[in-house]
Design a protein around this nucleic acid. Structure first.
Lengths: 133, 133
DNA sequence: CTATACGTTTACGTTAACGTAAAGATATCG
DNA sequence: CGATATCTTTACGTTAACGTAAACGTATAG
């Protein structure tokens, strides 16, 4: 096994700075069971794995997922201890998720097109406005 | 002018049914100034224009926009009474919005890829599970 | 006539996702 | 030693986006 994997760790404010969230937010995610950092006495110690999880949570957030949903997403990445029923449930969730994503893609395409049109109307209105004066 | 444009109208529950929201939701949007239906006595009457606006609001919602943001989007579609400064502000908002959309597109692409991988891992885990029994 | 369906206003309740403040431990710098 | 920075827990506050319930008109079908 390649032991050059740097076992880097982070403080709570390291992560807060990197991802531009407050420490309160990170602790809140821990309350919800989304993160389980190590401890050095009282102080929280975050591993690279925790960092990845936080990244996942924030990406989910940008896509409009709730924390509960993000937790599900995170759990998808480690289906090691599951029985077949749980795995089937997971597959269903994955498919549902994909449907939502496809809907969002379609929405975004439509909206982008309409934003282009809105911009064009804006420009034209400005032209008219200028040529009047 | 072509007068075959049907001036169709809708009741509040017509729209509620069509878009699968409650009437409370539609009235709430009106409270926020997002819709301004006509009235027949007490009863609200919705035009095709109102219907389009509602559609915009709900699409915005699917994309994670707040109602305040959706209101801005709606206002983009009628920049008739604006002066040049307002139009410039509008253009800026449009560009901001587009940036967010591009970020969402990138997020979705990444996530779709990861969902594919998660599904694959799921399937393999199920295979192993089955071949053991 | 009355029951049923649909509309209205008013108003308090709820949930998620944090914000904010208080009060204290620990460590390091000068 | 005191100031400053960074961490902690505890706990109440806040905002958005509705839900839910009460109490009341209106009209139409049986």
């Amino acid at each position: 096994m390649d032991e050059r994997k740097r076992k880097q760790t982070y403080s709570i404010s390291d992560l807060a700075r990197e991802f531009d969230v407050t420490t309160r937010t990170i602790r809140f995610y821990e309350e919800g069971g989304l993160l389980q950092p190590l401890r050095d006495g009282q102080t929280r110690i975050y591993t690279d794995e925790d960092r990845v999880k936080l990244k996942l949570i924030l990406r989910g957030k940008r896509l409009g997922f709730s924390l509960a949903e993000s937790r599900e997403l995170i759990e998808m990445y480690d289906p090691s201890e599951g029985n077949i029923k749980q795995l089937n449930a997971l597959l269903n969730k994955i498919h549902q998720r994909r449907d939502v994503l496809m809907q969002q893609l379609a929405d975004i395409e439509v909206m982008r097109h309409e934003l282009d049109e809105a911009e064009e109307r804006c420009r034209q209105a400005m032209q008219e406005c200028l040529s009047v004066n």
